[in-house]
Design a protein around this nucleic acid. Structure first.
Length: 301
DNA sequence: GGCATAAGCAGAGGTCGCGA
DNA sequence: TCGCGACCTCTGCTTATGCC
């Protein structure tokens, strides 16, 4: 697909596909949900980011011609040809078409923790409107075309969506050494958190790992991951605890707490209840974990 | 004995404004 | 862009008590 360009996608005419694949046993970290190329001229085209359900996903939409409108939190702007829209849902935004306007675009929607994490990192730096290089647009158009016409298995579809996420990553971070450095620092912190969940993890320690001051680290971490660092660590610990509780029926709750970095089982019980709505022992016996969508109410991606 | 709940408190965390 | 200090909020811990 090396020579695929945007014109090839447009040549096929308006087309879209909702990617609905059977759930595999393993959760894929990047999964497309829909893709397509459209020319819209009707005011019924109107999406509100707060009314599209609670399951998180992202929308990547490149404007080929015409124009669209975007309200992002309190700011309102127009999307012109050559501009690419990146949005996380749910979120306080709306994009729509005004009467008499025309909007030609291609888009890809995807979910999965890796897609969400990468797109959130990009959004934290660039905001929702991106100005990508022509070669990036062509590669994204190629991904979109292959999603619409192929990607029949979960693995194949996931690979295409992941490629699209990486193409975007290269464009944004590859051309901005400072952004790349910051991204790598946060990656290092995330790895540090994963490897030390059973130990004391203060925000000051994590800021040291990132090589930043506590206040600045807290600021960029929250912008990148969608949660302040302490809350992020807490949710990671509670997810690990939930898994341990259901997988190790003989392990005392206080031992599960200790393995997840909670020195005090009483405190563990308190925060566990806050997140899951029930105490650890009831959670274990009720089989709640299986009924959850593999995540607590406020998911850490 | 193991665990949950509640109250109280110290210190850590989040966030803002400001300056370099 | 980043660090620093200040201020307010809330987390994390201790202790006491009660239930199974």
């Amino acid at each position: 697909m090396g020579n695929f360009v945007l014109q090839d996608l447009m040549a096929a005419g308006p087309i879209m596909r909702t990617v609905s694949l059977p759930r595999g046993r393993q959760t894929l970290h990047t999964m497309p949900t829909s893709a397509g190329y459209e020319i819209r001229a009707d005011v019924s085209y109107d999406w509100d980011g707060r009314r599209r359900g609670l399951a998180p996903f992202t929308v990547l939409q490149h404007t080929i011609g015409g124009r669209g409108n975007l309200r992002y939190e309190t700011r309102t702007m127009q999307l012109k040809p050559g501009e690419t829209l990146l949005l996380l849902i749910p979120h306080n935004h709306r994009y729509w078409l005004e009467k008499g306007d025309r909007w030609e675009f291609f888009w890809m929607s995807m979910n999965g923790e890796e897609a969400l994490r990468i797109h959130r990192s990009i959004l934290a730096i660039t905001g929702p409107v991106l100005h990508l290089q022509p070669v990036t647009i062509d590669r994204l158009a190629s991904c979109c075309h292959r999603l619409v016409t192929g990607g029949e298995t979960p693995g194949a579809a996931s690979a295409i969506a992941y490629e699209a996420a990486m193409v975007l990553y290269d464009d944004v971070f590859g051309s901005h050494p400072t952004y790349a450095q910051e991204y790598r620092a946060l990656q290092h912190v995330l790895e540090h958190i994963e490897g030390h969940l059973d130990q004391r993890l203060t925000v000051a320690d994590l800021a040291d790992v990132a090589g930043l001051s506590r206040a600045h680290f807290s600021r960029i971490f929250a912008a990148s991951e969608g949660l302040p660092p302490a809350e992020f660590v807490l949710q990671k610990r509670l997810r690990r605890a939930a898994k341990l509780l259901t997988k190790t029926a003989d392990m005392p709750v206080k031992e599960v707490a200790a393995l997840c970095g909670f020195d005090d089982p009483n405190y563990f019980s308190k925060v566990f209840r806050r997140l899951y709505g029930t105490n650890p022992s009831d959670f274990r016996t009720s089989g709640m974990y299986a009924s959850l969508t593999a995540a607590p109410r406020h998911e850490v991606n």
